[in-house]
């Protein structure tokens, strides 16, 4: 590489702005100072997108459909698809009853109690940065709020299983932290073994680390894990996923990599479940 030739680049401006950017970065990572600013901006962006879609793109697309004499058919088709998706989400527990629970008595107990113990709301995903989901540690998505913002801690499920938890809300949208996010953990169990599965930062993969001198349990690939319900946030007995690999890590601990059955990329509508003490 050639030597740097002398130029008239203003160094002071660069110096000041690089220090300022570093300060912003430090404050955001260390103290989450700009989280509310980012959420406010996201909410504005989503609302603008929605408004532009409704005012500009929807009429154009409707006009096109009208000229093809298929408007009614397409509308009813869209409605049916939406209804189907909603009903898929609402019937999540029933559709998956064979897979979800260890035995049927727990399932029936849960279904009978769901209206009392776990009030639920239907929600629609407003934005999901799938690139960040694939590339990076932080896995988040946003939901449009219903009449009121979703409460922090609510469990978010779709027809494939538990996908995450409400982590933040403002007037327009609520943020969901997915179970694969590096900062999330969910209590899980398999027979008599309990652990807190942390997100790995890889899509659909959770990690469960334990000390083999404390737990004598032996594991094999494909072993299924369920939510344990400890902590009272997540409902008990919902299937989380199965072991895809077992690793020996530092200090003699064992790391179980668990692939979640829930896929946040499949549906636009989700259900938010609350335990009684949250809502």
């Amino acid at each position: 590489m050639a030597r740097i030739a002398p130029g008239n680049t203003p160094k002071l401006g660069y110096f000041v702005l690089i220090i300022l950017a570093s300060l912003f970065l430090y404050l955001d990572i260390q103290y989450k100072t700009f989280t509310s600013t980012k959420n406010f901006f996201n909410a504005g962006l989503i609302a603008t997108n929605l408004a532009i879609n409704n005012i500009v793109f929807s009429p154009i697309s409707n006009l096109y459909k009208l000229t093809n004499n298929k408007l009614a058919l397409i509308n009813s088709n869209e409605l049916l698809v939406e209804e189907l998706e909603l009903s898929k989400s609402e019937n999540f527990l029933i559709l998956n009853k064979d897979k979800l629970f260890n035995d049927n008595s727990e399932l029936y107990k849960f279904i009978n109690n769901i209206s009392n113990d776990y009030p639920h709301e239907i929600a629609t995903i407003s934005s999901f940065d799938t690139n960040l989901y694939k590339c990076c540690d932080n896995h988040r998505l946003h939901l449009f709020n219903n009449s009121s913002p979703f409460k922090k801690g609510g469990t978010v499920i779709n027809s494939t299983g538990i996908i995450g938890q409400i982590s933040d809300s403002n007037n327009k949208v609520s943020e969901v932290i997915l179970i694969s996010d590096i900062n999330h953990s969910i209590p899980i169990k398999s027979n008599a073994f309990f652990c807190n599965a942390s997100g790995s930062g890889r899509p659909k993969v959770l990690e469960c680390k334990y000390d083999p001198s404390l737990w004598k349990e032996s594991f094999e690939i494909g072993r299924i894990f369920y939510s344990s319900g400890l902590g009272g946030i997540f409902p008990e007995g919902i299937m989380i996923g199965s072991i895809i690999s077992i690793e020996n890590v530092e200090d003699g601990d064992i790391l179980l990599n668990i692939k979640s059955i829930a896929n946040p990329l499949t549906q636009k509508n989700v259900i938010v479940l609350y335990p009684n003490d949250i809502k």
Partner: peptide, 24 residues
């Protein structure tokens, strides 16, 4: 949705480096 200041920092540094090599 990246940490606030990350791209600002990297873009500023890159701009400085590119300008430094302008004549090269």
């Amino acid at each position: 949705g990246s940490p606030f200041g990350l791209n600002a920092l990297l873009f500023s540094i890159s701009s400085y480096i590119i300008h430094s090599y302008r004549y090269s």
